[in-house]
């Protein structure tokens, strides 16, 4: 029996009942740009980078269920411009200085930006003041780079069962907090072995004493950026 299908940029994509558009596309080795989506976690839908046109209507591909016969468009000039602007917004919202960041070369935001051809942040920088938390013996929190994807919140709650992270504030003042009256990571139950410690797509949660150990050219996204991981092809 043939599986149901929708078309993505004109190409038929088969899917299983219950899959989201981005899951179905991923299974078919087709890349839809994304940031806060993670194959191991339920969709979050906050970054909006995976916005596609579903029968002409803009929807987030990570939260929209695939349905037979849908016409989905992802690679349009307008969506491309939207995605560029979203990356630019994230770049001005925090303090992102790639040259000095040990996540450089393995950062989903950075790789998405270069992949989309974003050459500058465009908008005016917010330059928010966000002190780092170096209290934990094995982990460093650099909030300057947070994109509020909540992957650490979800991993710590759903997988580690520790609820180390949460979000507070709202609007541009929304920020990551930790589960301690002192506000310090050292006073939470966080361990370097937690899933939450390795799920951050950017450079907020970092293991101490291991930074900059991989030479440029061999870092995770030098070898296999997210697009390649999805498409299953080797870097040319």
């Amino acid at each position: 029996m043939s599986r149901p299908r929708f078309t993505l940029d004109g190409v038929p994509v088969e899917f299983d009942e219950g899959q989201t558009l981005i899951e179905a596309a991923r299974a078919a080795h087709t890349y839809i740009p994304f940031l806060c989506a993670h194959p191991d976690f339920p969709a979050h839908g906050s970054c909006r980078v995976c916005t596609v046109l579903v029968n002409g209507r803009p929807m987030a591909a990570c939260t929209t269920r695939a349905a037979a016969g849908l016409t989905v468009e992802s690679q349009t000039p307008s969506l491309h411009a939207d995605r560029q602007a979203l990356v630019q917004m994230l770049l001005v919202e925090g303090n992102h200085f790639c040259p000095g960041c040990e996540k450089s070369g393995g950062c989903t935001l950075q790789t998405l930006g270069t992949d989309l051809g974003v050459t500058s942040a465009g908008f005016a920088h917010e330059s928010p003041q966000r002190p780092v938390d170096a209290s934990h013996p094995d982990l460093l929190l650099d909030f300057n780079r947070c994109i509020l994807c909540e992957l650490c919140v979800r991993a710590s709650a759903d997988v580690d069962h520790k609820h180390v992270f949460a979000l507070s504030g709202r609007g541009l003042h929304k920020h990551l907090i930790v589960n301690a009256e002192s506000g310090r990571l050292a006073d939470t139950g966080m361990s370097v072995d937690d899933v939450a410690a390795r799920v951050c797509p950017v450079g907020v949660i970092l293991k101490k004493r291991v930074g900059f150990s991989t030479p440029i050219g061999q870092r995770p996204h030098d070898v296999a950026p997210p697009r390649t991981q999805v498409e299953g092809k080797e870097e040319p």
């Binding site: 770049l91 303090n95 200085f97 000095g100 920088h125 330059s127 966000r130 002190p131």
Partner: peptide, 15 residues
């Protein structure tokens, strides 16, 4: 370059 585009290393003082 990074400094012209987002302030770069010198902009670390913006904190």
């Amino acid at each position: 370059g990074a400094c012209a585009i987002n302030g770069g290393l010198p902009a670390q003082r913006n904190q």
